[in-house]
Design a protein around this nucleic acid. Structure first.
Lengths: 203, 203, 203, 203
DNA sequence: CATGAATGAGGTTTCATTCAT
DNA sequence: GATGAATGAAACCTCATTCAT
């Protein structure tokens, strides 16, 4: 039960921190604000986290990672590569829409925050790996072109999703994000070109 | 000449600041570090900038903007929409490769930094506008599909480019970024799908 | 007890500040000096006061005001107007003699310091009010002339007392200030003129 | 002519400084503000004054002193002591009314500013001396009481005048100050007591 | 475990003063 | 003499972190 309590307070503080970070950014947030938001004393935070940086590190290690971990589940539910990609994109948009504070912090702070460069790289790497597997499968099964620069394709997909979420975040999260699943996947698969010039645009 | 001198020191400090920001991030950089890097006294910085924030604001207002302003030139050099897009992407990668510190700061800090939200939005908006024009032209001329969700397409393109640069930045800028121009444009135009499933992937 | 502690440190810092201000003047005093004098860390001061200015504001709001508040008590102890005036003057001189640092700061800084002009005006106004009441009573009872320009009389009395204290302060507080009570009141009541020219000096 | 020019600029800067000090107080005024007000470069000020403090010192040494020096003239014009006092008070009010900036600075800063305690003491001492002479003459001639504590009487007069000016300054200098000459002198000579209790109020 | 008062290092910013032009 | 860009010392204030209770 103690463990449970500890866990509860750990999560309580982490959620509070994410909320405060989302509102003010990491560097403009204070331990006092987080403590107040969590309803605990300033000092209590140091019973669960080593430092302010460590809160952020934990956000990436646990909170964010736990979300990303669930991505693989839906990928496995689909049979073909395109559906796997579609499931991945949908789940990604769903999760970020469901926890806007997380989305804000992830988007605003991920590029800033390096602590041994571990946490964020881990998450990104995992994401890249899933994408790599999907693409390879798509190539094997003929759904995807074989002449792809795979590491570029991964970035291309991640970047587009990321920017769509980013726009949504900055718009205040007012519209439905999941709606963009199919249009996005369509762009990934078909691009924006008309059929006519399919075969003559790469020199 | 006075004007020149003034300009020189303004630029001297701005370059120094960008270098320091690129190395440590905005919040972990100090005025003293910037002054040292610029070879001036701390107080001198305040003759050219109102505050530390103002340095960043100027980075976005002048330095970055000046780079982005040059994008339109190359877009106009091309005749058809796909070539315009290709020129835009190439110039984008060229400019960011040519000034890695700028690339780092722009990529790491843009989402953090808001000062009336003006500068960065301005730049992004300008970029979005150029993309919008290119896509519309492509649609008119038949190079691009007419069933596009244009505001999404813009994000899709920006996001992909951004992520490619981001990866390059985090890799230490070691490889040639401009190489990615054609593969990227190919992905934008054709997507990753093989011809077989071109027409049945949107439900 | 917590309240007591808090109060203690608030007063501790306020006393230290008054001492430092008395020695160097407000603008030549530093937070560090005050902290050292109070035996606390610099930062501790900001747990009790919002800013350096706020220390001064509190000096006027609480410390000085509390002294002046006690003036009314002795005024009420006397029956006739002249005795009321005498009690007021005596108490004034007593209080300022008892707390020379307060006297110094009040005399040196009051005219400098404005923060919404509230505190000092309040004190002065209170003093003016008491004087006004005394004079009116004196007129009703026949102890004081009826042809007085009352608002001028108030200034005349305050100014004289103030200057007597000021001289004492600048002399290093070495002599007994309270001694001047009766001579001062005598001057207020009788002026410096001999009886001979009592009635022909105002044209 | 150089000497003339120098003098001109000396006075130009001194006037500008007094204006700026009157508006903001000594410590909240900057050399730049004074330079701007005087229409000269910051550095130029240091050709005429050793330091910021030295400007203030010169204000007391020359500007203020020159005003006070003129007091003696009018004192000598009168024949009897009461008229001398009246002339002194009138001239005092006239001069301060004529140069409100000077009045403001003198009143607000004199108690703050000590530089070897020379200048201000000099002025005050001169004023005290004049008063002393007047009172002694008044006693000799029978216009003033012989049982006066002279050093106290001096303070009593200075303080009252000072406070009347102070009130005028804080009211924005809106009313005519010289009007108070006669009422003030009347108070000095006759006090506020009615004839009835002239001889029994000192124990 | 929890608290929150206290700490003090360190940052930004101001501004009197200097000095090369 | 006059300038004003440059200097850098020094001040105020914040806030992550500690630790006695």
């Amino acid at each position: 039960m103690e463990q449970k309590n500890k866990n509860n307070k750990y999560n309580l503080i982490l959620e509070a921190a994410v909320k405060v970070f989302a509102a003010n950014g990491f560097y403009n947030s204070t331990i006092s604000q987080i403590a107040k938001e969590a309803g605990v004393a300033d000092g209590t935070i140091y019973l669960y986290f080593k430092s302010k940086d460590d809160i952020m590190a934990n956000f990436f290690s646990y909170k964010t990672k736990q979300v990303f971990d669930r991505f693989r589940e839906v990928v496995e539910l689909a049979d073909d590569a395109v559906e796997k990609l579609r499931n991945l994109v949908r789940r990604h948009l769903e999760e970020f829409q469901a926890d806007r504070n997380m989305a804000v912090v992830f988007h605003n702070e991920a590029r800033q925050f390096h602590q041994g460069d571990v946490q964020i790289s881990d998450i990104t790497q995992m994401y890249l790996d899933i994408l790599g597997e999907i693409i390879e499968k798509g190539q094997e099964e003929g759904q995807m072109r074989r002449d792809l620069y795979i590491s570029l394709v991964k970035r291309y997909i991640i970047g587009a999703i990321d920017e769509v979420i980013n726009t949504w975040v900055h718009a205040g999260g007012k519209y439905d994000l999941v709606t963009f699943t199919d249009p996005l996947v369509d762009l990934f698969i078909n691009g924006i070109g008309s059929n006519i010039n399919q075969n003559n645009n790469v020199r």
